[in-house]
Design a protein around this nucleic acid. Structure first.
Lengths: 124, 124
DNA sequence: GTTGTTGCAAATCGTTTGCAATGAT
DNA sequence: ATCATTGCAAACGATTTGCAACAAC
């Protein structure tokens, strides 16, 4: 099988993901990583993200209307809020729970995704 | 300003959206509409969807991992469930509500999006 | 006849892939 | 010296756009 190699590219990408306080878009991750590695290609970013998601170190965050963002799995279960004005995405702790009750009999719940929209504290 | 014209293309697309019991992908809508209008172009489907969403007759449904689906606004507020096995998307009535309590002070909630994942009755 | 609408093809955006060169082990 | 990884460019799928022909009004 394939043993993973510890390249500067991957180290940089992983570090940026761990430092970020909100989920990042691949293109922003690419821009930020290029400050350290100017020749870094966007394909390498996507490959690293795919590997990290497969290994379970990173999770995909989908905000309706946007392309996928990525965040480190180090943060525990939470959801996201996107401000309609400044477009910033915030992580929000807490979860309504009890979602199984929404399902008809015979349906089994494995996971869920909640996105809230509105105006953030700074914009309102 | 632009007055909308009642073309066969738009009538067909609107009718299909109203008949559907679950949100549809543009490419499926295109395929279905082509049974009536064989020369219908995919661009016309996207243009009609954009207009319908702008007018408020149709709503966008985003299931994480998939491209956007569309559904008639005639169905009232509800959420969606995607089966991990058969990949079918179901509408589910009901809503946990009380989501404002998840937000920090200063944040205002305008709308929300919930997607549940798991196994549907037919697959489990 | 005016002008919104269409189909087509080309363009765009985000993402993936093939491949030869490179670098970690 | 292996063989995973890289950067680049080409390929891709979904969506958008320009434009000349067309059709609803």
């Amino acid at each position: 099988m394939s043993q993973r190699r510890n390249t500067p590219q991957r180290k940089t990408i992983e570090a940026l993901l761990e430092q970020s306080t909100s989920p990042i878009l691949p293109k922003d991750l690419h821009l930020q990583a290029q400050q350290t590695l100017p020749n870094l290609g966007i394909a390498t970013v996507f490959r690293a993200l795919k590997d990290l998601v497969a290994e379970g170190g990173v999770r995909v965050v989908e905000i309706p209307g946007d392309s996928p963002r990525y965040e480190s799995i180090k943060r525990n279960h939470h959801h996201h809020f996107k401000c309609n004005k400044c477009e910033v995405v915030f992580c929000i702790e807490g979860c309504p729970g009890n979602l199984e009750t929404m399902l008809n009999p015979g349906f089994e719940l494995s996971n869920h995704d909640i996105t809230l929209f509105g105006t953030c504290a700074g914009c309102s």
